[in-house]
Nucleic acid binder design. Structure first.
Lengths: 76, 76
DNA sequence: CACCACAACGGACTATAGTCTGCAATAAAA
DNA sequence: TTTTATTGCAGACTATAGTCCGTTGTGGTG
């Protein structure tokens, strides 16, 4: 389920910033369609990609991972 | 340089626990040679793999990422 | 209605994460 | 010296991260 949790968190953070997938992709050096895949839980990023996304979203990578830990605890 | 930093951190945490690459690989469901590649900075893990490793190393994934952030700040 | 911005989605692709086998190098122990 | 445990490393492989180009669906807005 970790893929889905990451997707949910990413979408939430992106929408909080009020930017489009297109914009997030462009500013993080990633493809527009790949952002879409991530948010739908169809891909899981490497930690390098995590750092790129975090920078644009103005969050620490570790903060994003923390959110995943919380969701992950109450899952199995 | 993020790959190298991750490798350094991984090796340090593994040695602190006093376990071999073989043991870490086996207990995290990853290949022994892949642990070796990670520690030498020749591969970068996905966040799913990060969670697997963190569990065996008895660390929160976010703690490991935090260590990377610290190394990464003082690099460029 | 037509138009526009945005996201879902498909397919075909390239790059790289991760596996598996096996051998060489090292160091520590017997 | 021989044995044992551990890691480096090469090569060939499979699985999946990530790109690129295009089309479809949807919800505003003029």
């Amino acid at each position: 389920m970790l893929e889905n949790f990451f997707g949910q968190v990413l979408k939430k953070l992106r929408e909080e910033r009020g930017i489009s997938q297109e914009n997030l992709g462009h500013n993080s050096g990633l493809d527009r369609t790949y952002i879409s895949l991530l948010e739908r839980g169809l891909r899981v990023p490497t930690i390098v990609t995590l750092f790129k996304l975090a920078k644009v979203l103005d969050k620490k990578p570790s903060e994003i991972i923390s959110l995943l830990e919380n969701l992950n605890e109450n899952s199995d």
